Lab assay of single mutants.
Amino acid sequence: MTFKLIINGKTLKGETTTEAVDAATAEKVLKQYANDNGIDGEWTYDDATKTFTVTE
């Protein structure tokens, strides 16, 4: 399955996707991606669209 991350950061905005077997696995990968890029904020997840959003 494809999961999307929408980034609403102070210095970085955009989106990325990852392939994962489930939402929990995708969340780990996407949170690591955000952490690697210095993004720390509030996370939400929409199961209907398989989209995570992080807002700083």
Rank of each mutant, 00 (worst) to 15 (best):
M1T: 13
M1S: 12
M1C: 07
M1A: 10
M1N: 10
M1D: 08
M1L: 12
M1P: 10
M1H: 14
T2A: 08
T2S: 08
T2Y: 10
F3W: 11
F3V: 02
F3Q: 00
F3A: 01
F3Y: 13
F3N: 00
F3P: 00
K4V: 15
K4F: 07
K4W: 08
K4Y: 09
K4P: 01
K4C: 06
K4H: 09
K4N: 05
K4G: 04
L5N: 01
L5W: 02
L5Y: 02
L5G: 01
L5D: 01
I6D: 03
I6R: 06
I6W: 04
I6E: 04
I6T: 05
I6A: 04
I6G: 02
I6M: 08
I6F: 07
I7D: 02
I7V: 08
I7K: 02
I7E: 01
I7S: 03
I7L: 09
I7N: 02
I7C: 04
I7Y: 14
I7M: 10
N8Q: 10
N8Y: 10
N8M: 15
N8K: 12
N8L: 11
N8T: 08
N8G: 05
N8P: 03
G9T: 15
G9A: 09
G9L: 15
G9H: 14
G9P: 03
G9I: 14
G9Y: 09
K10M: 10
K10T: 12
K10I: 14
K10Y: 15
T11G: 08
T11R: 04
T11W: 14
T11P: 05
T11I: 14
T11S: 13
T11H: 13
L12Q: 11
L12Y: 13
L12R: 04
L12F: 15
L12V: 14
L12I: 15
L12E: 10
L12A: 07
K13T: 12
K13R: 15
K13L: 10
K13H: 12
G14M: 15
G14S: 12
G14K: 12
G14F: 14
G14C: 07
G14L: 15
G14Y: 13
E15L: 03
E15K: 04
E15W: 11
E15F: 08
E15V: 06
E15P: 04
E15H: 06
E15Q: 06
E15N: 04
T16W: 14
T16R: 10
T16Y: 15
T17L: 09
T17M: 09
T17A: 07
T17F: 15
T17N: 08
T18P: 01
T18R: 06
T18D: 02
T18Q: 05
T18G: 03
T18C: 06
T18L: 10
E19H: 11
E19C: 07
E19M: 15
E19W: 14
E19Y: 11
A20L: 03
A20P: 02
A20F: 04
A20T: 05
V21G: 11
V21I: 14
V21Q: 11
V21R: 10
V21T: 10
V21F: 14
V21Y: 11
V21N: 14
V21S: 14
D22C: 04
D22L: 04
D22H: 03
D22A: 03
D22M: 03
D22G: 04
A23M: 14
A23E: 10
A23H: 07
A24F: 15
A24N: 11
A24Y: 14
A24E: 12
A24K: 10
A24M: 10
T25I: 06
T25M: 11
T25Y: 08
T25W: 07
T25R: 09
T25H: 13
A26E: 00
A26F: 01
A26C: 02
A26N: 00
A26D: 00
A26R: 00
A26S: 02
A26T: 00
A26Q: 00
A26K: 00
E27N: 04
E27D: 04
E27Y: 09
E27C: 06
E27M: 11
E27R: 08
E27H: 10
E27A: 11
K28A: 14
K28H: 09
K28Q: 15
K28D: 07
V29T: 12
V29I: 15
V29P: 02
V29H: 08
V29Y: 15
V29M: 10
V29L: 12
V29G: 04
L30M: 06
L30H: 03
L30Q: 00
L30E: 00
L30F: 15
L30D: 00
L30P: 00
L30R: 00
K31S: 05
K31D: 02
K31L: 08
K31E: 04
Q32Y: 05
Q32D: 11
Q32F: 05
Q32H: 07
Q32S: 09
Q32V: 08
Q32C: 05
Q32P: 02
Y33H: 06
Y33L: 06
Y33T: 03
Y33S: 02
Y33R: 03
Y33Q: 03
Y33C: 04
A34Q: 02
A34C: 09
A34I: 06
A34S: 05
A34H: 01
N35E: 15
N35T: 09
N35I: 14
N35Q: 13
N35R: 13
N35A: 15
N35M: 15
D36A: 15
D36N: 11
D36K: 08
D36V: 09
D36Y: 08
N37W: 13
N37F: 12
N37Q: 13
G38T: 04
G38N: 15
G38W: 05
G38V: 04
I39K: 02
I39G: 02
I39N: 02
D40R: 12
D40E: 13
D40T: 13
D40H: 13
D40F: 14
D40P: 05
D40C: 07
D40K: 13
D40L: 11
G41Y: 02
G41R: 01
G41M: 02
G41I: 03
G41W: 06
G41T: 02
G41H: 01
E42H: 10
E42T: 15
E42P: 05
E42C: 06
E42G: 06
E42K: 09
E42L: 12
W43A: 00
W43H: 00
W43N: 00
W43E: 00
T44L: 07
T44Q: 08
T44F: 11
T44I: 11
T44M: 11
Y45F: 08
Y45L: 02
Y45E: 00
Y45H: 01
Y45M: 02
Y45W: 04
D46H: 07
D46F: 04
D46C: 06
D47W: 13
D47A: 12
D47Q: 12
D47K: 10
D47C: 06
D47T: 09
D47S: 13
D47Y: 11
A48E: 14
A48V: 13
A48R: 13
A48M: 12
A48F: 12
A48K: 13
A48S: 12
T49S: 12
T49C: 04
T49F: 05
K50T: 05
K50G: 06
K50L: 11
K50N: 12
K50F: 11
K50M: 11
T51S: 06
T51I: 07
T51N: 02
T51P: 00
T51C: 04
F52R: 00
F52G: 00
F52I: 01
F52S: 00
F52H: 01
F52V: 01
F52A: 00
F52P: 00
T53N: 05
T53L: 06
T53Q: 07
T53W: 08
T53F: 05
T53G: 03
T53R: 06
T53K: 05
T53M: 10
T53V: 12
V54G: 00
V54R: 00
V54S: 02
V54M: 05
V54A: 03
V54Y: 02
V54E: 00
V54T: 03
T55K: 07
T55V: 09
T55E: 08
T55A: 06
T55W: 11
E56C: 05
E56G: 05
E56P: 07
E56N: 05
E56R: 04
E56H: 05
E56L: 10
E56I: 15
E56Y: 11
